[in-house]
Write a protein that binds this DNA or RNA. Structure first.
Lengths: 245, 245
DNA sequence: GGTTCACGTTGACACAGATCAAAGCTGACA
DNA sequence: TGTCAGCTTTGATCTGTGTCAACGTGAACC
């Protein structure tokens, strides 16, 4: 199993899970010091991914899952005719590759939206370790379950919300995830294009652009290219709750 | 853990996993005879759910997952204002409740669309058994992963397909799942209303009804209330592939 | 410093699907 | 057998978002 990953960067032990500042967000969450030490054995390969490069593509055989150490990714599914559905945007501490377990092939593409680094977690090894470390097993199940719940949230976005509600929910979600990572809740740079946001939200890029402009006109946010500042969090939240139908 | 489930029906041992005719679709898939015997210990509670009743509701504390033995379910999420997003329809052999692992509370509602019976799998026990039975552990991971992949498929439906494509994909998906259970691929009764189909597909019930009528006019299917007969599978598939845009 | 290219914004118009309204169907129940 | 309630169908009209087109902007590169 490791043999297949031999082309990847050599271990950098100072970046072990036990030392990683993401350990409270990522796979190590809730492990004891001793268990953390075992995790360091499991996760000893890392890989740099430049902006625009894939970690894996649809159809690639599934070997490992990936924890994002730094950077930003999107996952997407393509139809034969070229239509793209972005299924998610992932940031530091989040796990990529869970889609591949079921069929032993990846079923979507994972692309870096900025230069990034991921920790490689060979999946067979993860299963072995999690038979020994109950807390790891349980936490991994939680990670998968939360992905399912997140997907349900996206279905709600796509199924029943209108354009401005979708974009407001999207901004609030980003804000909350940046906050959890110690960044500003109200000011950040988008890593994705209007087209990618639109693909995620089931909208065309022009509609995304217009919604941004309208939010700005209403004093909810400022937008300069990819730089977003949220001026009125409550206003965005109100957009979500006060749906007139 | 079992104590909390004491109100449920007593074990009916003749319905053990090892004897169940769904064992090749459900959790036991791929286990050896010996392992199947162990699974019989794990899954020894069953519960009848009448049409319209919930197995669990959003906010209920999470104790167990459920394998459908007979019947048909929907899962949905509700917004405060009453809007409903159906997140899935589940039939025999499929697993319900995975959404609850992450937060230890269920995050959606699971409602029987016809009188049904489920096998109760206490989750803490499942984790214990799957530390001993590698094949069970791995298969459970596959089940969760496939749920994630299914969700991505729904995102595609909702994000980039038009009304008729969505309905065609929906019918073909049902057909394929009925086939896997030994029923006719081309003739079946829908268990859900037009409104529920619409909620799943991000459409209004009138749009669903009109799309059914159009399919019938074009000779692709016949519809009589909830009875569907597919006359031209290829035609439905073509609708999906030959998107002009 | 100008050119290029990818990305973003804005306007005008079109259309798929939503909304509103009315009538039909079917099964349950008295 | 009649009535009722829930579901479905169909028609007329409306509207949010898509489509098409033109122009703006900023970063990268020679």
């Amino acid at each position: 199993m490791h043999g297949k990953l031999a082309h990847l960067t050599v271990p950098q032990l100072r970046e072990a899970c036990s030392q990683c500042n993401l350990r409270e967000l990522c796979l190590p969450m809730g492990l004891t010091d001793h268990e953390l030490g075992q995790l360091d054995e499991l996760v000893n390969l890392r890989r740099r991914i430049l902006r625009g490069q894939h970690i894996y593509r649809c159809g690639d055989s599934f070997e490992a899952i990936y924890a994002i150490k730094t950077g930003f990714f999107k996952t997407d599914v393509l139809l034969e005719d070229g239509r793209e559905q972005v299924t998610g945007f992932q940031m530091a501490g989040e796990i990529l590759g869970l889609d591949g377990i079921g069929t032993e092939k990846h079923t979507c593409n994972a692309v870096a939206l900025e230069d990034s680094e991921v920790c490689i977690i060979p999946f067979a090894d993860l299963e072995n370790y999690s038979r020994e470390i109950g807390a790891l097993q349980h936490h991994f199940h939680k990670v998968m379950s939360r992905e399912i719940v997140r997907d349900h949230g996206v279905m709600m976005l796509l199924g029943i919300m209108r354009a401005e509600e979708r974009l407001a929910a999207f901004l609030l979600n980003l804000s909350q995830r940046f906050t959890a990572r110690g960044y500003s809740p109200t000011e950040f740079n988008l890593r994705m294009t209007r087209n990618e946001i639109g693909s995620y939200l089931g909208l065309k890029l022009e509609t995304v652009s217009r919604a941004f402009s309208r939010f700005q006109d209403e004093g909810l946010i400022t937008v300069h290219q990819k730089h977003i500042q949220i001026l009125n969090v409550g206003g965005l939240k109100k957009l979500l709750s006060e749906r007139r139908v």
